[in-house]
């Protein structure tokens, strides 16, 4: 990815805004490769070993989280004037993600508050949904962004 113009400011994410984007399909090979590196538990590594516990291979929740972040980058984060990323408030893995699932993102802005003359803070609720519109994961996090047209310190 080449550097993109950072042209999205706090004002571009008003409270109650809803956005939907992304689209990524997971293969068994993707799931196992990620798990080998970051989450080597049997139900993420081997379909047969996973059957008793989960009915078959499932993706690591951290893999789903990483894919959420990638879809966010592609949709808006790479263009956002981010001042600070304080962290994730909450993450929940509601349903397993399995090979062949196609994931996309729903984003709702829960909160948009000015924090300083040149900085605003937003709170997003992300939902990862699959091809059947089933929510597989939710994440709530905050992001501080530059305010448009304000002098920086």
């Amino acid at each position: 990815m080449t550097a993109l113009a950072r042209d999205l400011a706090f004002e571009d994410f008003p409270a109650d805004e809803f956005a939907e984007y992304g689209g990524v399909e997971l293969t068994a090979e993707d799931i196992v490769a990620f798990a080998h590196e970051f989450d080597p538990q049997p139900f993420h590594l081997d379909n047969e070993a996973a059957k008793p516990a989960t009915g078959g291979l499932i993706a690591s929740g951290w893999h789903t989280s990483a894919l959420l972040h990638r879809m966010n980058c592609d949709a808006f984060l790479a263009r956002a004037m981010v001042v600070r990323e304080p962290g994730i408030e909450e993450v929940r893995w509601a349903r397993p993600v399995r090979p062949g699932d196609r994931l996309r993102v729903r984003r709702r802005t829960l909160l948009a508050v000015a924090r300083a003359a040149d900085v605003g803070e937003v709170e997003f609720l992300y939902e990862i949904v699959n091809q059947d519109d089933v929510v597989a994961m939710t994440q709530r996090c905050r992001l501080q962004l530059r305010r448009r047209g304000r002098r920086t310190n």
């Binding site: 990815m1 550097a3 590196e37 970051f38 972040h69 790479a78």
Partner: peptide, 25 residues
């Protein structure tokens, strides 16, 4: 390269790497 291309872009520009979303083997 897989999950946070902002870091790649920052590295190419010689700028600071964003503080989050880093991991390792």
């Amino acid at each position: 390269a897989r999950f946070d291309p902002r870091i790649l872009a920052a590295a190419r520009e010689g700028g600071p790497v964003p503080p989050r979303d880093c991991t390792s083997r």
